[in-house]
Amino acid sequence: MKPYLSIENLTQRFPDGKGGELTVFENATFGVEKGEFVVILGHSGCGKSTIMNILAGLAEPTSGAVVMDGQEVKGPSLDRGVVFQNYSLLPWLSTLKNVTFGVAARHPEWTKAEVIAHSTKYLAMVGLEGDVIHRKPSQLSGGMRQRVSIARAFANHPKLLLLDEPFGALDALTRGTIQDELLKIWGGTEQTVFMITHDIDEAILLADRILLMTNGPFARVAESVEITIPRPRSRTEIIEHPNYYAIRNHLVQFLGKRSKELSGQPMDSGATNRPAPIRIDKTEPTPDPEDLRPGLRAVVNS
């Protein structure tokens, strides 16, 4: 049984500018289940945005395929909403029009008033109300622009939401509010979320599963860490959970040390690169028999 979103033997090479080739990643293979919230963590330049562009259908991989819901991804679609790393707002349109642009594309049958009402609602959800929504993106702060871009993607209820460091430019307070909004929107639907971030705590708060990438070139999605903290999670309460620091330490260890150690080796050609599933759970002294899949568990006792 294939997962809902299946990434199969994805390889991406770019010309390196010196006549040679730069292999960003090779034969990357992993899956995302329907309704799952997956976060990918990795150092700058390892190829996260490249993977996301391929998932969005905006870029073609050198080889390999992405299959969503049994259909191969060929080109972009309204079912896959993207929040771009650089916001990608249209600078000649007002904030509101940047959102109505997307909503009108999604719902061509709606009246203008309906489109505006829907867009205004989502802008308010990310804290943009009143006069601000009639300003041009150039007249907004970096964080406000990012929120417009988030509102544009959320308003369209895509089946798969692709978020490339969506909260990078936000202050801690706004970030928290929008994280909560994201969880609310995601929780109420069948939406699948694939998100890139550099923030470990954000990843633990939001994710069902964290994919860890080694440094490039020849980056690998090396591990898939299950977040064994029950939902609903709150920022203040999760740190009390016995699994929190165990998971956090594991992630810090990986990003700080092992991402470097594991990087740079080309794989045997043709070998499929699957992440090792990691489950860290200190609350279960006797593991649930259902979860006891030999070879799929690595219990970290630190």
Partner: peptide, 23 residues
Amino acid sequence: DWVNVARTHELNPLKTAFTVILP
């Protein structure tokens, strides 16, 4: 990036030309 916005919103080429490329 702007063309990509049009692409992810499935705008047809004519609509892309008038609402994104022209402005």
